[in-house]
């Protein structure tokens, strides 16, 4: 029998999942089918925020460059699609591909390798230096992407079609939404499991007191690097989905504003709680959408609302809902 807080947490999770499952038919019944596509984008950004919370909330590594991995994932899908459409082979005689089973794992691999490289350098520092170095790497990749003349330079790549996945039609908003939901739920479940595993304990120990961890005998660097790489790969998957959702891949995905948005989502939802990252992403994007419909000065309103939320719910939305604060 699980203790009461654990029970409440599971109940809240179940309610969230049911609401997410019921959303598309409800929207359709209300004649607001357009928003199913928007909801899928929320799920995708939630996955990206979740990947950030793994390193930031559990491991105490505040990455200000996670949008780079989002962008890399998107570009892998975009470039694969571009070569199919243009009929131009890739280097080494490889053909382009739109097959999700090829391109999405490749997106994860590419983003994961980038995270491995960036992490290997950045994780030699901590605190503010780590924040600045991750930001610098992301900005380098942002300008690099803008310089890819073949792939549209600053304008990016417009996809002619979404990835293909067996008999599924990903251009159907419902199908795409449920696919995104399934992937997000799988990542969330795996991360929640990981948080209590030996690996997760090491990450949380590093967050609390890295010096003590080393004195206990943990080679902390390699665990942090592994977490950073895993986080990058998951963020790359979110990027691949994002390219499909907007049928576009461009440097804008990698900008520092996007990295900042991911940070806001995680903090807003409740750092280190994992579920909070999902809630934070949903809250931020829905607020943006709702306020933009009200007034053109919506960013002023958004700022004020975020301030209020930060002051009133210090443990984030998830803590406020009774799900508990950081996973500890």
């Amino acid at each position: 029998m699980a203790p009461a807080p654990e029970l409440r947490r599971r109940l809240a999770l179940a309610v969230l999942l049911l609401a997410a499952l019921a959303l598309p038919p409800v929207l359709a019944a209300l004649g607001q089918g357009y928003y199913v596509g928007f909801a899928a984008r929320v799920l995708i950004m939630a996955m990206a925020a979740l990947s950030l919370d793994l390193v930031m909330g559990l491991g105490g590594m505040v990455s200000f460059g996670h949008a780079a991995f989002l962008g890399i994932g998107a570009y892998v899908v975009g470039i694969g699609s571009w070569h199919v459409f243009e009929g131009v082979p890739l280097p080494f005689g490889l053909a382009g591909s739109e097959n999700a089973l090829v391109v999405w794992p490749l997106a994860m691999l590419a983003a994961g390798l980038a995270a491995l490289g960036i992490g290997a350098v950045s994780l030699r520092t901590t605190g503010i230096h780590f924040i600045m170095i991750t930001l610098a790497f992301a900005q380098m990749l942002f300008y690099l992407a803008g310089g890819l003349k073949t792939y549209g330079g600053d304008d990016g790549i417009t996809l002619y079609s979404r990835s293909s996945l067996g008999g599924l039609n990903l251009s159907d908003p419902f199908t795409f939404y449920y696919l995104c939901l399934g992937l997000l739920a799988a990542v969330l479940a795996a991360f929640l499991r990981l948080a209590d595993s030996r690996f997760g304990m090491v990450l949380k120990g590093v967050r609390d007191n890295e010096r003590r961890m080393r004195a206990l005998g943990f080679p902390t660097y390699r665990y942090k690097l592994a977490a950073f790489t895993l986080s990058g790969a998951v963020c790359g998957l979110a990027g691949a989905l994002l390219a499909n959702a907007s049928e576009f891949a461009g440097p804008a995905y990698m900008g520092w504003q996007r990295s900042g948005e991911l940070l806001v989502m995680v903090v807003l939802g409740g750092m280190g709680s994992l579920v909070g990252a999902v809630l934070g992403a949903a809250a931020l994007l829905i607020l943006e959408e709702a306020l933009a419909g009200l007034t053109q000065h919506w960013q002023l309103l958004l700022g004020a609302l975020l301030l209020l939320l930060a002051l009133s719910a210090r443990r984030g939305l998830w803590g406020w809902l009774g799900g508990g604060g950081r996973h500890g």
Binding site: L194, S197, F199, M201, V202, M213, G217
Partner: peptide, 13 residues
């Protein structure tokens, strides 16, 4: 710290 490596991602510690 003394029970082998901690690249174990599934069982609750």
């Amino acid at each position: 710290a003394h029970a082998g490596h901690s690249f174990r991602f599934w069982r609750p510690a």
